[in-house]
Design a protein around this nucleic acid. Structure first.
Lengths: 188, 188
DNA sequence: TATAATAACTAATGATATTAGTTTTGTCAA
DNA sequence: TTGACAAAACTAATATCATTAGTTATTATA
């Protein structure tokens, strides 16, 4: 009712994250957002460019936060320990903020420069973790693709309820990561 | 214009697949579908229950086809050879029918009985491939989760353009799969 | 051939995003 | 202190969708 609600971009973004995490990313609509913020839909345009732009910002934030979570997790660790911790941090982020993670994972177009840079930061972080392994640049890049596939695949299937069997999920993840790392260590 | 267009459920489904593969799954709208089939939107309701039901059918079909592709790929193969072939068949399916694959991967609710059964068939197929490894039931289920994570993660990242580096993709996939399989073979 | 089932249609409703133009409020400089 | 301007809310309008209700034409069948 009050003419000034005191909104800003961050508040809108935060509300969008909450809706995404609680109700699912497909429920992040301008209508739902406006209702949550006690504002009419068009008012949101003072703070965001539109729905696609909002989704892009969510993706961007998600990439940044996921990298932060991994950085925090590997402090004081190196080698397989660090990779294992980073893998768990990745999946745990997706568990804690399923909507935000989904916003990142389900963005159709990854061509945006901001997103590319955030994505490059994640890749750069993983390359750092691989330094002790003394791989060639090409080998390291293949491993980064492999590692990302592993953790994203696991997180994604788990979130979509793809694992319906009664079976410890952390144990599945631990085995997946250690199996992959063991394979890296071993020559054919 | 003609009053009977000769539509049936399969035709509608096929058109939906084409839109999904060419324009992306988010472009599969009843409006686009009706336009493609030279029909008004409400007419589609004679053949499908609605958009959510259509998407569910796409997911179902995708699960069936992906299993068929893997079955075909492993004929005459066993052990690591079979798993490698199945992994490539999985990813190649996603490459050939990106929209159909995405429809499967991005379905919010996997609780439907039809989908569960189709999904169980995929799991059952993978368990068969693991028979030569003589794992316990629990071990085998963990491996199935791992393998699905690996191939889905790779396919998903590749489709979303997550691999922007100039680097052979098939080589990345081959390394990922063989590394995982090598890890399975090796004890710690 | 008459009737029933079916597949198309039109019309209407409600949700959504977006744009244009308006009003109110807060801030800042004269 | 006040007046002007920028910003943030608003209303109104449009366009796109999905969906439902009710109607008409076609096909199949009894």
């Amino acid at each position: 009712m009050a003419y000034r609600q005191g909104l800003d971009t961050d508040t809108v973004l935060q509300a969008a994250i909450e809706i995404a995490d609680v109700q699912g990313v497909e429920q992040v609509t301008l209508a739902a957002l406006a209702a949550k913020l006690n504002v009419k839909t068009p008012s949101l345009y003072n703070h965001i460019k539109g729905l696609p732009a909002l989704r892009k910002q969510l993706s961007h934030l998600s990439l940044i936060r996921i990298k932060e979570a991994m950085v925090e997790a590997v402090l004081g660790k190196a080698g397989d320990d660090a990779l294992l911790a980073a893998g768990f941090a990745y999946v745990n982020f997706a568990r804690k903020q399923p909507g935000l993670y989904d916003a990142m994972a389900s963005l159709p177009d990854f061509g945006d420069p901001d997103l590319q840079q955030a994505s490059n930061n994640v890749v750069g972080f993983m390359l750092r973790l691989l330094e002790p392994y003394a791989l060639s640049e090409e080998d390291a890049l293949h491993v980064v693709r492999g590692f990302r596939s592993v953790v994203h695949g696991f997180a994604s299937l788990e979130l979509k309820n793809g694992f319906r069997m009664e079976l410890e999920r952390d144990e599945s993840l631990r085995r997946l990561l250690t199996t992959y790392l063991r394979g890296l260590r071993t020559a054919d």
